[in-house]
């Protein structure tokens, strides 16, 4: 049996991150895109905590704390924007909001 070490956590984090990225790139519903972003952030948080343990440094966990705060703020503002957009255009998806094209 293989020993459980940091690499396992990091590989798992890389996989979650990649899945989140694929979702962000392929889904059209802005809400689901947001959820994918949350997935990617969680993957990153997992690496931070892993490194915190590996290097015996609490600062990694402090960074995760800040990432969570920023993620919360981002979700609040992002959902506010989505609500504002949906009010004007029912059922809009991310591709419909492309007025700022060159």
């Amino acid at each position: 049996m293989l020993a459980l070490n940091e690499t396992w956590y990091l590989v798992l984090a890389a996989m979650i991150f990649t899945i989140g990225a694929v979702g962000l790139l392929t889904r059209k519903n802005p809400l689901v895109m947001f959820m994918c972003v949350e997935l990617m952030l969680n993957a990153v948080n997992l690496t931070f905590v892993t490194f915190s343990k590996a290097l015996d440094d609490i600062a990694g966990q402090a960074i995760v704390f800040f990432v969570m705060v920023v993620a919360a703020a981002e979700v609040v503002v992002g959902l506010g924007i989505i609500v504002a957009i949906m009010r004007r255009r029912q059922g809009a998806n991310a591709d419909d909001i492309s007025l700022m094209r060159g």
């Binding site: 591709d95 492309s98 007025l99 094209r101 060159g102």
Partner: peptide, 14 residues
Amino acid sequence: LRPVQSGLVRSYAL
């Protein structure tokens, strides 16, 4: 180069 700025968020993400 202008069409690159498509306004499509997902293209930018790509």
